[in-house]
Design a protein around this nucleic acid. Structure first.
Lengths: 139, 139
DNA sequence: ATCATTGCAAACACTTTGCATACGC
DNA sequence: GCGTATGCAAAGTGTTTGCAATGAT
């Protein structure tokens, strides 16, 4: 827990218990959660946790560069810890989001058509290998 | 107008006056409009036009592959005619969205980590050349 | 004591749904 | 005439805002 504390302090965020639990959850979860998923999960630990706090925290984390906001369709924002640059694949069938690796050159582009690039996002959509597997079983 | 009619019929969409105007607007506009922007614009021609019709039409166009939905942050969907594959740059300052060209190889990826790719989106965010220009003027 | 963080309720914005009306072949 | 497209109003969903209560130093 101390490491996460340190981490938040370095980023200029004071480490409240709520913020720590949220950060910890982001680190452990594999599922690129929405704000409501985070709330649902952590309110089991902290029953009084409010959605407002989640939204506040996520916006703060986002400003501080701790997380990225993913918006791969669906009209809800999903969050992802900024560990290293990578792309995302979203299965249109089951909704699951996978991290995928692509040519890192794309993330090095800092200027395009005279515009200064600060952030680059790459989203693939389609049908994931699991959903493909299920199709075969049902034959 | 006949060309657009033809185009819709080919895509299996019956060409109502509303749908035609929407398509025409998408073709002429340079600004990757939201549903509400489309509504605002076209209701000057058709004062009784309802938002529902815009949403219905855009969902239909999207299903038929006529348009792509862009979601470059901001929590509103923007629409783009599917002419050729390209990336988008959104200025965080003025909100404007530009089409940009990138290495077309990325759009040719049809399988990644065993997942079948149907659609690929690339979004850059940052500060556009116009906003940079303004900064200089204000010095 | 002061300033930041939390949390509730209400407000918001975008989108979808239900159903009645109008249109086109 | 019948099936589709339209449009209004209401509901739904994810997020933000206003403000009071709480917590930390």
């Amino acid at each position: 827990m101390d490491k996460l504390c340190e981490f938040l302090r370095e980023k200029g965020v004071s480490p409240s218990i709520q913020r720590l639990k949220i950060l910890r959850y982001l680190k452990d979860s594999e599922n690129h959660p929405t704000a409501l998923m985070i709330h649902h999960e952590i309110s089991r630990d902290i029953p009084t946790l409010s959605k407002t706090t989640i939204y506040n925290t996520m916006n703060l984390f986002s400003e501080k560069g701790i997380v990225s906001e993913l918006c791969v369709g669906e009209g809800e924002v999903r969050y992802d810890l900024n560990l290293y640059p990578h792309a995302h694949f979203r299965c249109a069938e089951c909704g699951k989001i996978y991290d995928v690796k692509i040519d890192p050159e794309l993330f090095k582009i800092k200027k395009i058509n005279g515009n200064q690039v600060v952030h680059t996002a790459v989203y693939f959509t389609g049908k994931c290998r699991e959903c493909f597997g299920k199709d075969k079983e049902n034959l």
